[in-house]
Computed example of a mutant assay.
Amino acid sequence: MLRRSAALLPLALAAVLAAGCAPVERAAETPSPASPSSDASSPTPTPTPNLEPVRAFDGDCDQMLTIEQRDELLGAGSITVAEQMALWEPERPVPVGADPVGTAGGLACTWYAAEGSEPAAGVRNLTTMVLPAAAVTNEIAAAYSVAFCEPNYDASACRLGVRVGDDWVSATVGSEVYEAPEELLSAAVEAVSRNLASATKPRPADRTDQTWSIPDCVELGEAIGLEDIVGPYRHGYWEGSEQPEDVLFASAGIARTCPMFSDSERLDYNTHDFRILSPLVAPGLGWQWNQLRTGAAETAVAVEVAGAADSFGVDPGYGSVRVFATDGTNIASMWSQDAEVAAEVLSRMLTALSR
Rank of each mutant, 00 (worst) to 15 (best):
W289T: 02
R207P: 04
A282K: 02
M64D: 06
D209S: 10
D99T: 13
P49L: 03
A27F: 07
W287A: 06
N330D: 05
P232N: 03
C61N: 06
V130S: 00
T351H: 09
L87P: 08
F324T: 01
G328F: 02
V192M: 00
T211V: 07
W88K: 04
P47K: 12
G284E: 06
P49G: 14
V136E: 02
G105C: 11
P10R: 03
D273K: 10
G319W: 10
G20D: 11
L184Q: 02
F324N: 04
Q243G: 02
E222H: 10
V323W: 03
S145K: 13
A141F: 03
N138T: 15
D310I: 06
V81E: 05
W287Q: 11
P132R: 04
D338N: 08
G236W: 06
D246I: 12
D228R: 14
T110Y: 02
D315L: 02
A197T: 04
T329H: 05
L126W: 01
D206V: 11
A332S: 08
P49Y: 00
T299R: 14
G328N: 10
S32H: 14
E239C: 13
E72S: 13
V341A: 07
T329W: 06
D99P: 03
R159A: 10
V323D: 03
G102L: 13
S37I: 08
A205V: 01
S333F: 08
L220G: 00
S311K: 01
A282W: 07
A18W: 14
L126C: 08
L8G: 10
E150H: 15
S336L: 07
P93Q: 12
G161K: 00
A114Y: 06
P215L: 02
A18Q: 15
E176Q: 12
A6C: 10
M85Q: 11
E227R: 05
T103E: 15
I276L: 01
T294I: 15
L277K: 03
A250F: 13
A121V: 10
A98E: 07
E340V: 09
G313C: 05
R55Q: 14
D228Y: 01
E179D: 07
D273C: 10
M260F: 03
T200F: 02
I67Y: 14
N125V: 12
A255D: 10
W212K: 01
A308G: 08
R266I: 11
S347I: 03
Q63D: 04
N125I: 05
P10G: 04
G116E: 08
S264G: 13
F312E: 03
G116Q: 07
S347W: 11
A18H: 15
M334Q: 13
C217E: 01
